[in-house]
Design a protein around this nucleic acid. Structure first.
Lengths: 237, 237
DNA sequence: ATTGTCATTATGACTAGACATATCTGTCAA
DNA sequence: TTGACAGATATGTCTAGTCATAATGACAAT
């Protein structure tokens, strides 16, 4: 672990990463600079090329560097801010803050989805889906409303679940692991019905999280989650 | 690239990842299962341990697996949904959709921050900060309001910028690369002043993105961005 | 001026083997 | 029964080297 006389704090590839980040910060390598190749850096840091390669690969994944074969490695010119949001299952989210979780099933039917939902999932005209509406509670108080459509062609078993005991979300996470999803966040004004459910005045600003989930190419479910005023989603970089 | 008779689609470590994901999905290895060790998998897939190691390491970073020395590798029991939001600079965000970007500086002063801001950044009582308010436009129409506080103790140069030509955000990204940040999203009702700026009715639901940035331990800036109704932030997993 | 060919070059992936280190387990002694 | 210690084990990291592949730039042919 001989890394150019550095105090060896942590693994060598991390020492390399810290040194590179420090050079970028201190404008030794300003944005846009082409930095030395892996072989040169390996020589400088006194380690194998694979070690440098790992350090650079991870920095590239983080968006700090841009790598291209033959062209070399450059410091990213216009870095994008990335926020990693962790959206846990409602039950855990509530339990983490030490409150009691509960949920009410408000509505359940197998019916034809509205055109917008059908198109979003790319399903055939005339398809019927499982539609469920639900209110999640923390210590009895409204925490989140859920309006979910499930593609029964992809998950026919979903038709048989007792949604009053297991929430659809939990069932889906347990039975359909590793799906890919698109999440979008926006602000919406509470309709009269939503206001009544969430216990806030009509027109109040709600945080609206919508998520559509696929397993491979197969659309599974799309859900709209509404949160009462004051709710925040926090992410760190 | 001999990977157990597989059609070699992509790199070996990716083939391994796909196979592992498929086993988890198909309940060959249900959540909680301890999967075979790296050496066994290397033998099964006919590749080196380093290749298996990389495949598993990345799946662990993605939250699919949990790894512990001596204890082995297990399929994560309660996977968390992660949404990766990319929040580009306003200028790019507007330009990407083919609209013309513009911004107006509404306010600029060096003054004492409100208590909440001061505490959020962990600064001393009585500190003075650069305070700027700004309206960003797309094709002339209001796109985003910005209310920013900059820690002049950390970035004294910021006092000298001409904020009418360069927006504070762009200057900070260019001059202070690689800072860490905490981002939070919520919904807020438009005040009368905000409504006037954004061209929406008072009380309209706005998406509120707040971000606080540090360079190491040093707080740099905190900003509140408000977006008119209809604005969405989209993230993929 | 344009197109095609080809060597060069830097990254990307991989192997076989080594040592490091956290952690679990069983054993033995206080 | 409890605690301390030693061994086993699985992951974590690293090396030195090989082969693969994408992109570039120079040069030649059209």
């Amino acid at each position: 672990m001989t890394v150019a006389g550095c105090l060896p704090k942590g693994a060598a590839y991390q020492v390399v990463q810290r040194e590179i980040l420090s050079r970028i910060r201190n404008k030794v390598w300003p944005p846009g600079t082409r930095i030395p190749g892996e072989i040169d850096l390996a020589a400088e840091f006194g380690c194998a090329r694979a070690t440098i390669s790992r350090a650079l690969r991870e920095l590239a994944e983080a968006g700090v560097l841009e790598r291209k074969r033959r062209a070399g490695t450059r410091v990213t010119l216009n870095p994008v801010r990335r926020a990693m949001l962790e959206i846990p299952m409602v039950r855990q989210q509530v339990a983490e803050t030490g409150r009691a979780y509960g949920h009410d099933l408000l509505f359940r039917a197998v019916e034809a989805p509205p055109e917008a939902i059908r198109a979003r999932l790319g399903l055939a005209v005339g398809v019927r889906m499982l539609h469920a509406r639900c209110l999640h509670r923390a210590d009895g108080r409204p925490f989140q409303t859920e309006d979910r459509w499930i593609n029964l062609e992809a998950v026919p078993e979903a038709a048989g679940i007792d949604l009053t005991t297991t929430s659809a979300n939990e069932w889906l996470i347990r039975e359909m692991p590793l799906s890919s999803a698109e999440t979008s966040l926006s602000a919406a004004a509470a309709t009269d019905a939503e206001a009544a459910l969430l216990g806030c005045p009509p027109g109040a600003p709600l945080l609206d999280i919508e998520r559509t989930t696929w397993l491979g190419d197969l659309p599974i479910t799309t859900v709209r989650l509404l949160h009462p005023p004051g709710f925040r989603v926090v992410g760190r970089v």
